[in-house]
């Protein structure tokens, strides 16, 4: 259960927005659910490379992980009315008490326009030898001007392959954002989370 919740946090926090932003753009990122606090801070050194620090705390188990994120925008397709991206993701860090190393590698692809978004992310986790597939389909019921609040309805589907077993999960997510502020809330009646993010 613990491992699954950790995986859930990884995938949710990685899926909130683009893993790499504008040159010298900084990201502050906070996710909280009944069990965890997840804090991130990082900078896109270029428009293709993000590096940042992450502190993940399990309040119930009293475990904390200190991680370093390193994301690369491998390719972006800027089109007339849409955008598509291919990212390479990695993170490495330690359990602050046991000093056990944990690392992940992944690939993330997405396509979006003003109304729709499709995303797929595959990530491998070394500490439990698992592979996680995450799929998001999103729809914006109305398009708004830059200065107004944008709303997205997201269907999030996840499959985790671990010890020859596959577990799946579906979460509906509401995303709202305005300029550089983003807020997400998701719940399936069993699992829920809140995310706040700012770019500056």
């Amino acid at each position: 259960m613990f491992r699954r919740l950790i995986l859930l946090l990884f995938l949710i926090s990685n899926l909130s927005a683009h893993p790499v932003i504008f040159k010298n753009g900084k990201v502050f990122w906070l996710t909280q659910n009944p069990t965890y606090n997840d804090l991130r801070f990082g900078i896109s050194k270029t428009s293709n490379w993000y590096i940042g620090f992450r502190l993940l705390e399990d309040r119930k188990e009293e475990k904390t992980f200190a991680l370093m994120n390193n994301n690369i925008l491998a390719k972006r397709w800027n089109n007339e009315n849409s955008q598509a991206n291919l990212y390479l993701l990695s993170s490495v860090g330690l359990n602050t008490k046991s000093s056990k190393v944990m690392s992940t590698v992944g690939v993330h692809g997405d396509w979006e326009n003003r109304r729709f978004m499709v995303m797929e992310m595959l990530e491998y986790y070394s500490y439990n030898d698992s592979l996680v597939s995450n799929t998001r389909l999103a729809f914006s019921p109305f398009t708004v001007d830059y200065s107004k609040i944008s709303t997205w309805l997201i269907a999030h589907y996840r499959v985790s392959y671990e010890d020859k077993n596959a577990s799946e999960m579906f979460i509906p997510v509401l995303r709202i954002f305005k300029r550089n502020y983003l807020f997400e809330f998701g719940s399936n009646g069993k699992d829920s989370f809140v995310t706040f993010m700012i770019h500056y």
Binding site: F22, K23, G25, E112, N113, R179
Partner: peptide
């Protein structure tokens, strides 16, 4: 601008 399809995309441009 090609690819500017969301507020967070545009924010980076405005900041720059």
């Amino acid at each position: 601008v090609l690819g500017m399809v969301c507020s967070m995309c545009a924010f980076g441009i405005e900041e720059g």
